[in-house]
């Protein structure tokens, strides 16, 4: 096919795109018909500095950052806090970033009609939360530790326990959707989604750190996880 676009292109899996994932990673079968196959166009320079949407407090409901308090009773599972900072790659905090999370319950089941894993649903757990980062770029959620769950990618395939994260920074380019994992999970070597990240050092960036210092005695275990978005011209501005 002759490509009508005649500007500079890069291949969809060019490692120069960053410490990033291989988007057509063969071990993750769904990539085969969904990863873009056509060479990628180079973005016009001015679009690298495009502002993105700004979300305010009106985006949030009061209990959005406490996934254990959204129902009449408490969910089953290990109560945990997950907190950290959203930073740019120069280490500067990103204020007012919208952080959205979703996860399986303690048994590894999502409250979603497509999830047919024969593990119980928890009437006291929806598994979704959101918050805005504070002036220090910090976010905090209270939730329960999600369970591992099977999926149909290959025989005896199981996802390591994880929490999905979605982020908006100040710039359109800072948009990120990713997953946070828990340290020491024995399923890491077998998970093609985790291993689609090329560089083992970059994979480690998705692992939360257990933090005894902020663990609340007699109450909840604490995990810390910082998220680093690329730099843009807008850092240092107040939200």
């Amino acid at each position: 096919m002759t490509d009508p676009y005649d500007g500079p292109v890069v291949l969809p899996d060019d490692p120069s795109l960053g410490p990033e994932v291989q988007v057509d990673f063969p071990g993750y079968r769904s990539t085969r018909w969904r990863a873009p196959s056509r060479p990628l166009a180079t973005l016009p320079e001015e679009l690298h500095a495009l502002r993105g949407p700004v979300f305010g407090e009106s985006t949030l409901d009061p209990l959005d950052n406490d996934l254990t308090s959204q129902h009449d009773g408490e969910p089953i599972g290990e109560r945990i806090s997950v907190s950290g900072r959203v930073l740019d790659d120069g280490g500067r905090p990103i204020r007012g970033a919208l952080v959205e999370i979703w996860q399986a319950n303690a048994c590894g089941r999502y409250r979603h009609e497509v999830d047919q894993h024969p593990a119980p649903l928890d009437p006291n757990f929806s598994g979704a939360g959101r918050c805005l980062t504070d002036d220090d770029g910090r976010y905090t959620f209270t939730t329960i530790k999600p369970g591992a769950y099977p999926w149909g990618n290959h025989p005896n395939a199981w996802r390591p326990a994880h929490i999905h994260f979605s982020l908006f920074g100040r710039a359109f380019e800072q948009r990120l959707v990713t997953q946070m994992y828990f340290p020491g999970d024995p399923l890491f070597p077998y998970d093609p989604i985790f291993n689609a990240i090329r560089d083992p050092k970059s994979r480690e960036l998705l692992l939360a750190r257990f933090d005894l210092a902020t663990t609340q005695p007699e109450w909840s275990l604490a995990f810390e996880w910082d998220i680093v978005l690329r730099s843009t011209p807008f850092e240092g501005e107040h939200a």
């Binding site: 994932v21 979605s166 680093v228």
Partner: peptide, 17 residues
């Protein structure tokens, strides 16, 4: 600092997003 890598939204994104 290295930037945090991307991962798929997966099939259940609608409960969160």
């Amino acid at each position: 600092m290295r930037t945090t890598p991307s991962q798929t939204v997966g099939p259940f994104y609608s409960i969160g997003l």
